[in-house]
């Protein structure tokens, strides 16, 4: 029996073990669930050591060619002090380093990507010569929908009157439409995951489909 075949059988049996939860919770499901978590963590640690820690830290240190690597190495090891209450505070240093670096590097670009570009896109001209009517309609829906949703989240004024009252009512409808679209996509996503497993079970395992 080849390793591939063993792998397929193991995957198939654990797929069924996970789906057994649909009938009711049982020890087999719990076993499969815990194994997924454990194996994922173990695999990640092994890969990280194999790809990063070994070749980029341990090997150069053993070869004596990268003493400067001791600095990030020691900084990284300080994370482990989380498990020792007396010196747990030391773990804040690598965290501070990572957070500070990420914040400094990422903040301007993140602002640009997620805020300024979106603002820019919302300020597009509603109409231009030769623009098809459905694009104009889309622009109107987009602009008034954005404004209405923003009004709904403006809590400093009571939601009464034409502007705040009607605006927030339209806003909640826009938000609900957004939730509806997300729900539809979520259903599609969950069914897609089921399809993937059924394709595996019927195809790779039982050979009933190609």
């Amino acid at each position: 029996m080849s390793y591939d075949l063993i792998g397929i059988w193991v995957a198939a049996l654990f797929t069924l073990a996970i789906y057994s939860f649909l009938y009711k919770e049982n020890p087999l499901y719990r076993l499969a669930e815990h194994l997924v978590v454990g194996i994922s963590a173990g695999y990640s640690i092994a890969i990280t050591y194999d790809i990063v820690v070994g070749p980029k830290l341990v090997d150069p240190l053993i070869a004596g060619t990268g003493w400067v690597l001791l600095i990030p190495g020691i900084l990284g090891l300080l994370y482990i002090t989380r498990f020792m209450p007396n010196v747990a505070w030391l773990s804040r240093y690598p965290m501070a380093f990572i957070m500070g670096t990420s914040m400094g590097v990422g903040f301007p670009l993140t602002m640009k990507a997620e805020v300024l570009r979106q603002l820019e896109a919302a300020m597009a001209p509603i109409y231009a010569a030769g623009m098809p009517w459905h694009i104009v309609l889309g622009n109107l829906v987009m602009i008034f929908g954005t404004l209405a949703a923003l009004i709904y989240f403006f809590f400093s004024k009571p939601h009464k009157g034409i502007f705040f009252g009607t605006g927030s009512k339209v806003g909640i409808w826009v938000i609900m439409l957004g939730f509806g679209a997300t729900f539809g996509f979520t259903v599609m996503g969950r069914i897609s995951l089921l399809i993937g497993r059924i394709q595996f079970l019927l195809g790779d395992w039982l050979h009933l489909i190609k």
Binding site: T182, F185, T186, S192
Partner: peptide, 8 residues
């Protein structure tokens, strides 16, 4: 992206 993420 996954369908769940698509609308985002």
């Amino acid at each position: 992206v996954t369908a769940v993420m698509a609308t985002d």
